[in-house]
Design a protein around this nucleic acid. Structure first.
Lengths: 166, 166
DNA sequence: GGCCATTCAGTTGCGCACAATTCAATTGCA
DNA sequence: TGCAATTGAATTGTGCGCAACTGAATGGCC
């Protein structure tokens, strides 16, 4: 039942089994995520976007203008990742950054004409991706729900792992 | 039903909806994957491993000795990623690299005493991770199966996207 | 009003993922 | 046997993710 080690000595201990690569949900997750990136990479090349840049544009197409902080809340990214990424989008002419008048600390990112126009060309991407997954809308919805619950649980656990309070 | 754009003008077009961030399975997937990494990062710090390094060790604990190429097949990584990573594991004293006698092109990676011994301390990791996910073994198994099928489908699609053959 | 803690963006540094290239070793085939 | 194509590892370069830090702006509190 259990493949065990290469020596042909099957491990019957569940704790041992748990250390096998194929028992790691995190690996299946990461593999699927990278496979997704690979498909997006091909589709997005003609838009001149990387996959993380595409996600930033998706958020901006939905909200038009956001601070770096707000972008990070939507995408779970911090300024260390977003600052250079947004700069590259600005260099590509898709967004512009401006200091807020109300709060000089924050920087608002908004679409340029060109950035807004790119949305038209991006509309086909989700359909082509959906076709590539080979699964139906219902299963996609179900998977998303499960994954989001998983993320919430893991975030909570990560906080608990760094007690700070004894 | 559909939140639509910030202007309060709900988009009833399914194509428009598909461009919303919360419709992107890839994002839920990546978010869950990064949440996993975060929990692992905390647990693995005391083992002196990063999450990708841990996965390499998991494969080596299972197979004892593999070429860089074989490691890459297990983990879906190429030498561009593995070469420096394995070098860091070697610098940490956990593995040793040796040119194969049969084929001088290939480099075999095998555990040192210290690397093999580290397995004992790693045995607790999967249990603590399982607790952090907040889901049962059955759902984990089901999720893994779905994700692996998804990865297979996406890989096939990625190949089809780069026709090369017209 | 003046001071301190907090907030926000940006930078630096490190490791990972991946494309593209290089180079040596090997294989295949004429 | 000799040469071309392939294979395996390593290197280079770019971008992402994240921790740690900097510095300016803001807000709270006395």
């Amino acid at each position: 039942m259990a493949p065990g080690y290469s020596e042909g000595m099957p491990s019957t201990d569940a704790t041992d089994d748990a250390l096998r690569l194929d028992q790691h949900l995190c690996f299946s997750l990461q593999a699927a995520s990278r496979a997704f990136s690979g498909v997006y990479r091909v589709l997005l090349k003609e838009l001149g976007l990387t996959y993380p840049q595409y996600l930033v544009m998706v958020v901006l197409w939905e909200h038009r203008e956001l601070s770096v902080k707000q972008l990070g809340e939507h995408l779970r990214l911090d300024s260390g990742t977003l600052s250079p990424l947004v700069k590259r989008l600005e260099a590509a002419g898709l967004v512009r950054r401006e200091r807020s008048a109300h709060d000089e600390r924050s920087v608002h990112v908004h679409l340029t004409e060109e950035g807004a126009a790119l949305r038209e060309r991006a509309l086909l991407v989700p359909r082509r991706i959906a076709a590539a997954t080979g699964i139906g809308l219902d299963e996609v919805r179900d998977l998303r729900a499960r994954l989001d619950r998983l993320t919430t649980a893991l975030d909570a656990a990560a906080l608990a792992e760094v007690p700070d309070l004894g």
